[in-house]
Structures are given as C-alpha cells and as structure tokens.
Amino acid sequence: MDVPLDIGLEEAGAVLAAEAARFASFGWMRGTSGNLSVVVSRNPVRLAVTASGLDKGELTAADVVLTDAAGAAVGAGRPSAEAALHARVVRLTGAGAVVHVHTVAAVAMGGRRPGGIEFEGLEMLKGLGYRTHDVAVVLPVIGNSQDMAELGDRLEAALRPGMPAVVVAGHGLYVWGDDPRQARHRTEVVEWLLELALTG
C-alpha cells in the first residue's frame, strides 16, 4: 500500500470492530445496519470505513475498507454505501471518527420533530461539550435521501455550532468526534437525550 497512514488499517479495523460490537449489543446496529469510520490519515485524507453488508456484531479487524476524501474505495473492498457521507462529515467538521446507528428513538423523534429536537436544562448536555446544563440546544433533523451528495448538502445546511450530531428522518443518527471513543460517548449521550424526549 502506497498510502502513508497515521494509524494502521488493521489497528483501525480492530477499533471499529470493537465499537460496532458495543453498539450492536445495544440493538443500535441490527442486522447489517449502520456503519462506522475513523480517519487514518489527514494528508492525504483517508478513512477506514466498515465494509458493506456485514453483521456489525461480528466484525473483525479485516472488515474495513480504506476510502479517500470522497468516500470512494482505495484498493480492495466495498465500503458502506454511506461512506461518502462519513467523508463529507470529516471534511466539514474536522472529525476523526463518525458513527451511524439506526435507533428507534432517533427514527421516532425525527418523525415527530422534523424541524429539530430541542433540549434544555439537562445535565447530560455536558457530555456533548456544553459547559453548563443551563443551555437550550437543537439537534437538527434532515430529510433522508439515497443520494449521498444530496444528503450531504442537507447535513451541511443543518449543521449547528457545538452540536456534533444530526438525525436523518426515517433512517437514524449520525454523530462524530475527535476519535472513536469521543464519537461513542457522544452517540450514547445523544441517544439518551432522544430516549428521554421520546417519553415526553
């Protein structure tokens, strides 16, 4: 491989396999749904993305595909169909890792609040980087599309400062962070908020 990696592809695959197993155990990546990515190089931009069509609870370190800054495969393998959106999030936000899960709460709340989901006065907001619970924030909701360029445009238009997540109506949740651990923590926090909103 002639691509200079900041971390090895196998190492990235092992990390993503462990993260996927965790999310699958929560029921957030049922069947073969959902996908994860981590940036393995910044110059040039390269992402390790979970391979398409695999059970996310059974991934191995080899079940990732290297992609370029547009989400196209570099070398062998077929990445998730949504790799292009992962790459777009990385370009827009500088994220080091992106999580996409299909949770019941995200789909349900995206349908109930198509204009965005507001949260206010909750201690858990600190888990998204807010300094105090005494804030009101909006989690954006965007319409779904099978066209990743169109979906990426919608995501870009909906981005809000300080909010590292977006709900795709009828589909699921995208969350990002500096690295896989932060992306995981933020995903768990956003899902908690969505579950709370669902009970209201």
Results as ranks from 00 to 15, higher is better:
38 V>G: 00
3 V>E: 12
162 G>E: 06
189 V>F: 05
89 V>Q: 02
168 V>Y: 03
92 L>F: 03
41 S>W: 04
71 G>H: 07
87 A>F: 04
36 L>D: 09
141 V>H: 11
29 M>I: 01
92 L>P: 01
145 S>F: 02
46 R>Y: 04
41 S>L: 06
23 F>L: 15
60 T>M: 03
72 A>Q: 11
85 L>C: 04
161 P>S: 13
61 A>D: 07
136 A>D: 00
127 G>F: 04
195 E>D: 14
89 V>M: 10
190 V>L: 10
167 V>F: 02
67 T>I: 02
155 L>Q: 03
152 G>M: 05
29 M>L: 15
12 A>H: 12
138 V>Q: 09
62 A>L: 06
10 E>T: 14
20 A>F: 08
6 D>I: 01
151 L>S: 02
61 A>M: 02
165 A>W: 07
16 L>T: 12
11 E>Q: 14
87 A>W: 06
32 T>C: 07
27 G>Q: 11
125 L>S: 07
6 D>F: 01
80 S>R: 05
171 H>K: 04
158 A>Y: 11
114 P>H: 06
174 Y>C: 06
187 T>M: 12
111 G>T: 00
33 S>Q: 13
45 V>N: 01
142 I>K: 07
78 R>K: 15
125 L>E: 02
33 S>R: 14
93 T>M: 08
17 A>H: 09
193 L>P: 07
113 R>G: 00
41 S>F: 04
116 G>H: 11
